[in-house]
Each structure stands twice: as structure tokens, then as C-alpha cells.
Design a binder for these strands. Sequence first.
DNA 1: TATGAATGAGAATTCATTCAT
DNA 2: AATGAATGAATTCTCATTCAT
Lengths: 209, 209, 209, 209
Amino acid sequence: MSTAPARPRLVTDRRQRILDAAGPVFAEHGYERSSVDAIAKAAQVSKPTIYSHFGGKEQLFRIWVGEVARQTTEDAVRAVQAIDVTPKKWRASLVGATTDLVVAWHTECAASLARIANAEVGRDPEIFTVLRESAHDPVIEALAGRLAMLGNAGHLTVPDPVLAAKQLIALARTELDDISEFGTKPAPVTVVRRVVKVGVETFLLAYAA
Amino acid sequence: MSTAPARPRLVTDRRQRILDAAGPVFAEHGYERSSVDAIAKAAQVSKPTIYSHFGGKEQLFRIWVGEVARQTTEDAVRAVQAIDVTPKKWRASLVGATTDLVVAWHTECAASLARIANAEVGRDPEIFTVLRESAHDPVIEALAGRLAMLGNAGHLTVPDPVLAAKQLIALARTELDDISEFGTKPAPVTVVRRVVKVGVETFLLAYAA
Amino acid sequence: MSTAPARPRLVTDRRQRILDAAGPVFAEHGYERSSVDAIAKAAQVSKPTIYSHFGGKEQLFRIWVGEVARQTTEDAVRAVQAIDVTPKKWRASLVGATTDLVVAWHTECAASLARIANAEVGRDPEIFTVLRESAHDPVIEALAGRLAMLGNAGHLTVPDPVLAAKQLIALARTELDDISEFGTKPAPVTVVRRVVKVGVETFLLAYAA
Amino acid sequence: MSTAPARPRLVTDRRQRILDAAGPVFAEHGYERSSVDAIAKAAQVSKPTIYSHFGGKEQLFRIWVGEVARQTTEDAVRAVQAIDVTPKKWRASLVGATTDLVVAWHTECAASLARIANAEVGRDPEIFTVLRESAHDPVIEALAGRLAMLGNAGHLTVPDPVLAAKQLIALARTELDDISEFGTKPAPVTVVRRVVKVGVETFLLAYAA
DNA sequence: TATGAATGAGAATTCATTCAT
DNA sequence: AATGAATGAATTCTCATTCAT
């Protein structure tokens, strides 16, 4: 117990350290241009360690995608669940929640993920499935649920809540790709807030009861 | 005239043949995974020929991007200009034109271009500029113009035509990424027609005079 | 006669124009790094023209070497022949002639030739022979002749005039490689003059009668 | 101990094996015509190994140059330091040491190095600096020191020892380029001995007290 | 478990050279 | 005689992956 090294914990940390290092690398350079070497260096780990933990570049990538998707989705769903359906607050909270949702997806990491996954979908179609199931669908579902509630509460007319959810997001993001140059430049939150609000207002014009 | 060789024609065609061959390759594999070798093989041309015509992989890629963008934009703008503002026809023609516009952007080539350019924008930010200026802006401008006309004609209430144009497109495309799996699978035209119509209807709910 | 083009002359000029263009290119980049393309461009001529006139890069190179060697040797021999063996002038004219000889070999072209030929001698041993026979030997012979005359005139003691000639040149050039950094930097004539004089003085110490 | 593999040794030897293999290749073909492939094959090593050890062709070349220069200089300086200034021995030892010095520089490797460095000096001027500082200057310094001692001992009259050192070397090497055809052919030691002796004798004629 | 060292396969690019006109 | 266009071969260098320890 006296001379016991503090390693055992680190050993399990290795995995996380690699993932943490891989994130920025993938985010900045994309899949192809990210070399395992670079990731190993960033993680201060040797290449074989990466291989023994993840099996290869491809798998490491997939796991990273999963991680970011899970995290982002968690944030997005939390934002959606904050929508307050009470008469006095629903408007403001809808705007606020939509903003939070959009912001959650505009994290540097999440934005890069979107770009990269988009690009790699041709090479590895499973990525599409993973992302849809672990990121897209849950958020749409959650949002559709809240919109349905707003319908039931008589604030909105929502014949197809899932469609409405998708459209709300589409409207909220309308100007963002322009502003953030496809997710390359970080858009200041105040700007995001403004454009999202504009989108939500259009949504309300269409869906207001 | 009897012994005239069949070559002279081909000589000048080389450039186009290379571009034609590069298209599918880039479209299918993306920039990084497309090797000049593969393009040369597909074009039945030697690698140096590509280099003497285009200067390098990067430039070939940019020129391909430009070509597709130009072609797509041409089609899209033509679609927009077909919008008929007369009382009886405007609704139908708005739906029709929006459908055509979306279809123009869902060509296999154009869809791939969007995915790839998106992916490569980090490596070569100029692509963003090129695409915005040569593809995105002209279409938005044209569409904004028609929407303004519809406003003047009293059919719509369009305080900000450019915004409206962007929103119309966003709504029209809302379900397309889902359906075409990020542009990977070709969406049947009938399906496209249906989802676009849904989007335009939402747009009209918001913007109808 | 009226519409006759002025070409016929140019046709024969082509050859010289290519040689003139090849000189600086070879001189600056050496044999390997000089591309036929670059030479063609510099000569404002198409590559096949070079091939039809010279047969290939190698042969063009050899002919260039020959040209420079001939020219340089001519100058060097002329310098040597200016040595005046009369009692009053022999010392000064020996210094002057040696300086001229060294200067002739320190032309940008000649210096490069020396460097390059030296380098290429392994690849093409014939170059050594060509240079020795067309450049080195004639100069040594001429100088040996004059030194012998100076011996006969009683000014010097020259048991082996050929050896003496080689030694005189060696002494005269002693510091030049240092100063010109292996012929890369052009040495100012005043400096050349000074170091050559020093060398000749040592020579006279050894050979004075 | 029975099953101990023979590899561990080799692993660390890789670097040296590459250098040893690179030497002859560079020496025979010069920098440009030496392909990394050829060196790898000669070293029985894969190309990436070379790159991981040396970073690239250029750096490998520089390191080789450094190695040969260091080795050669060591030998040359040792030869110079063997000069004995005692009255009875100085003449013979000066001849002997100069011979050794010249021989050290006429190693196949050193001779090639001189040729090649000379050729590459245009492309990479740093080579000149490296060689001068690590090879040329130390030898000249050492030799100048000994000549000064001989001057102090009253055997020679040496107003400028550094100049004298350079001249001694120049005279000793006078006929060597001819004989060895620019360092291409190996000159038999007996021949070297003879021509060096002739050169030293001329030196003594000029510098004897 | 973790790693330094090694590699086979393949990338972009350039070159000397030759057709067909 | 001159050229634009094309090419086979070779170059340097990088990468994902795997041993042997």
C-alpha cells in the first residue's frame, strides 16, 4: 500500500484521454486528414495504445461521433424539456428553448461533427443511422411532444407535430449556415439569439392558433 | 480525307473528359479519398495530362466545384424565374418552381457537391466564398425578387424578401435530408414533390396576405 | 520577294538561342535540376525543337559544356600569351596574365561549369576527358611554354615547366574557393587581383632564378 | 538465453545501417540521382524507416556530409599533429604528414563528398558553411599552427601561417585532380606519395628559412 | 498494458521524351 | 522545321497498421 503506484486509475483514463484528444483533431481536420499519429501525440499516448483500445481509426471515429452526439443530444433534449406550456410563458420559453437547442448544436464540436459526419456518410453509411437514431430523432421526438402540448393547450394549431418540430428547427437555423460559414466560424451568441428569434416568429405566424 | 485520323477532336475534348470523369469520383469518394490516379483512369487519360490541364488535384477540384455550382445555379434560377405572379397561377407556380429548385439541388452531382464542399470548407475556406457567390446568393436573390413581386401583387405579406426566400427554401427542404439520407440516396421525384409542397404550404400559412 | 517572311535566318538562330538559354539554367540549377521544360521556356522554344536540334538533355548539356570550355580556354590562352618575357616587364606581366587567367575561369558561367562538370563527372566520365582536352591541357601547355621562356631568359629556374604551370595556377587560386564560396558568390575583381598576386609571389619565391 | 532473438541489437543499429548504406549511394550518384528507394534497398530497410530516422532525403544527406566531414577531419588533423619540429625530423615528417593529410582527403568517401558538396552548394548554401567550419578550417588551423612552430624553430620563414597552410595544401594536391580524374579514379598511394612530395618540395623552396 | 520501431501500400507530383499535326 | 498535347516511369513522402519487447 505504501509503494503502490497511482497508475491503476490512469490506465482506465487512457481511453478517455484518447477520445478527448481525438475530438479536436477530427473536428479540425476531418476524418481523412486526421492521422492516428497526430491523435496519439495529442493524447500523449503511443499509437498501439490507440489500437488496443479502439481497434483502429475508423472505430475510434465512430465512437467519437457517438460521444459527441450523445452529449449534444442530451443538451438539446434538456433545452426542449424546458419549454413551459403555461399561457404566460410559452412564447418566451419556446424562443428560449429553441435558441438553446440551436446553441447546443453549434458547439464547436457538434458543428464539426455535423460537417464531418455529413462528409463521411458516403464512406460509412452507418454513421447516418447512428446519428439519426442517437441524435436527431430523440430531439425531434421531444420537440414534437412539446409542440403537441402547446397544441393541446390551445396556443398552436399543430396537425402534425413531428413535421412542425422539423420545420421549427429548419426555420430557427435558417440563417446560421450563412453566418457561421458552414459551421467554420463561431457565431456570437447574441447573433444566434436574434436569428433564432426571427425564425421562431415565422413559425408562430404559420402555426399560431 | 480517307486516312484522316479520328483524334483531332479528342485532343480538345481531353479537358472536358477529365472533368466529366472527375465528377463522379469526387462525388462518390469526396476530395481526400479521390486519387488523381483514379480520375485519370476513369478519364482514360494519363496523370500528367491532368496536371498539365488543371495544375493539380486541388485546382481540378475547385474547377469541378465551380462547374457544378454554375450548372446547378443556372437550373435553379431558371426555375425561380418561372414563378408566375398572376392571380390565378401564382400558388401553383410557386409550388412548382420551388419543387424544381429543390430538384435542381438534388441532382446526384449537386447533392454530392453540397456534402463535399461542406466537408472541405475547413481545409479551403475559399470554397465557401465561391459557392456562396456563385450558387447560393444568385438563387436567393432571384427568389427574393419573385417573392417581393408576389408581395406587391398583394398575394403575400413579405417585409423582408431575402429572409423569406431563405425560409421558403429551408421549409421546402425540411424533410429532404432525412429522406435522402444526407443526399446519399436519390429521393424519388414524387416524394420530393410531396414534401416540398408541404413546406410551401407552411410558408404560405406564415406569409399569406 | 515582297511577302517573303524573315524566318529563314531565325531558323538557324534557334540552335544558338537554345544554347544561350540553357547556359544560365544549367549554371544555376545544375544538370539534374534543370528541366528541359525550363530551358525551352527560357529559349521561347518548344520542347520538341530542343530534341530535334540536340537529341536530348544529355547531349545539349555536353554541347553547352564544350561551348563554355572553348570560350573560357580561348580567353585563358590569350591571357597567357600576353606574358611578356622582356627583363623589365616579365614580373608585372606574369602577375597580370595570371590574374586574367584566373578571372577568365571565374566567369559566372565558367565557375558554374567547373562545379557542375565536377559533379557530373561520375555520371558521364567523358566530360572529364572533354574538359581536360579542350580546356585544361591547352592552358597548361601555353603557360608551361611561357614559363619555359622565362626560364630560358634566366628569370626563373624551371626544371619542369608543366609542373610549374600547374603549381602557379594552384597557388594563384589558393584562396579563391574560400572567397567565392565554391564559385557561388562572385568575387570582386580587386579581391581576385590581390589574392592572385599573393599566390604569384609565393610562386616566384620558389622558382626565382 | 537459448531462445534470445538476434534482433534487439539490430534495432538500434538501423540508423547506422542507413547511414552506411547511404554513403556509397550518395558517393556514387550524387544527391539528385540518389533515390531514397535505392538507399532503403541498400540498407535493407523500408523507406518509412529512413524517414522516421532522418526526416527526409535532404536531412539524411546533411547528416552523411557531417559524418564524413568529421571523420575525414579527424584523420587529417591527426596527421598534421604528427608533424615533428625537431631539427632532424621536421622535413621528413612534414612530407609524411602532408601525404597523410592528402590521403585522408582522398578516401573514396571524402573525395566524393568534396565533389558532391561542391555540386550541391548552389542548392543548399549551408553545406558550404558546415563543411568549411567542420572540415576545412580546423585542418587549416592545425596546419598553420605547426608551420608557425617550424617558423619559430628557425626552419621556415612563415610570415602568414594560415596562408602558408593553404598554399602547402594547394601545392600538395596540385596534380591529384588530374590523376584521380576529379576524384573518380582511386589514385595509388605510391603515386600520391610522389606527387605530394613534389608539391612539398616546391613549398620548401618558397618558405625555407 | 504500453510502446519504440518497422513496414506495405499508396498518395501527389515531376520529368524526359515522343506523337500527330 | 516547329509545336501542342500526351505519356510511362520514377520521385519524395505519408499513413494505418503491426511486431517484438
